[in-house]
Write a protein that binds this DNA or RNA. Structure first.
Lengths: 143, 143
DNA sequence: CCTTAATCCTAGTTTTTAACTATGAATTGT
DNA sequence: ACAATTCATAGTTAAAAACTAGGATTAAGG
């Protein structure tokens, strides 16, 4: 029932872009350093976000990435579904006709409830919310 | 974000024991056949449920397994946590001190929300609920 | 134009986990 | 004694996750 590093890193990546948004593109190498994540791995992850239009890229020196929308316009669900694939605990909870037992399987109802509960959370948390949480937790962060 | 076969099979196994509870022990082989699951694999899964005291075992011929409590006393959460390990999307959401970034990481709050939402579902669905759903879906099951 | 710093693209590798499979010992009803 | 069951442990296979590597492409600055 784990969320993979792809999804988690993608969220932190987007959050980092939001935090460091000065209008200028942000270098991926800097994000990688700040977040302590391999930059080569981040390249793959942001490629997906880029193709989906969630970020804009600028190539060449002084290049990097910028969010293409306001933080409030991204939900965690958008980012996680894009990078994780699906957030459903089982296949049969999101699509019909996969399981030949589905007419006689009560557990499917449970999976659907779980799936809905997860969606309800991630679809109502935006990047802006994360930013706010980040800032308020920053206050009690002593280094 | 998937639930593994261990957890899913364990639920179906417990549900099968509940459905076929006549007071006599139920043979694992029969469960395996009904559910279409390898009996050797089920052996491993029920071993965990047995050690936790969720089922009682009877060895030898005419042996098998029986639920040790009423269906209403088992929640899906009990069964899934036992067989799946944890239902949390990330480690840092259930235990503190794992992530050295936790004081400055807003995503942790999101993971905790997801974790709580999932718990809220699975801790309020009992085996008895599953039994009822099973019976009502049986009605529109034509074979 | 040339160098350099960035993104882009694809393929390969390693590690971990999931999902069984196999073998045989222990137990017990007939 | 025999046969049917659970019990215990180890081994195997397949798939997915988590990176790693190498080079192509683009564009700013001198």
């Amino acid at each position: 029932m784990r969320i993979s590093t792809k999804g988690r890193y993608a969220l932190r990546l987007m959050l980092d872009l939001a935090e460091n948004n000065t209008g200028e593109p942000v270098r991926l190498k800097d994000v990688a350093k700040r977040q302590g994540i391999s930059d080569k791995y981040l390249e793959q992850i942001i490629s997906v976000l880029n193709k989906a239009g969630y970020v804009k890229s600028v190539r060449g020196p002084m290049g990097g990435y910028i969010l293409s929308m306001e933080p409030s316009e991204y939900t965690a669900g958008m980012i996680l579904r894009l990078t994780e694939g699906s957030l459903s605990p089982v296949d049969c909870a999101e699509e019909q006709g996969i399981c030949e037992r589905e007419d006689a399987c009560a557990t499917q109802i449970l999976w659907k409830k779980i799936s809905d509960a997860v969606s309800d959370v991630v679809d109502h948390v935006t990047l802006e919310d994360l930013l706010e949480w980040q800032e308020s937790s920053r206050d009690n962060y002593c280094i």
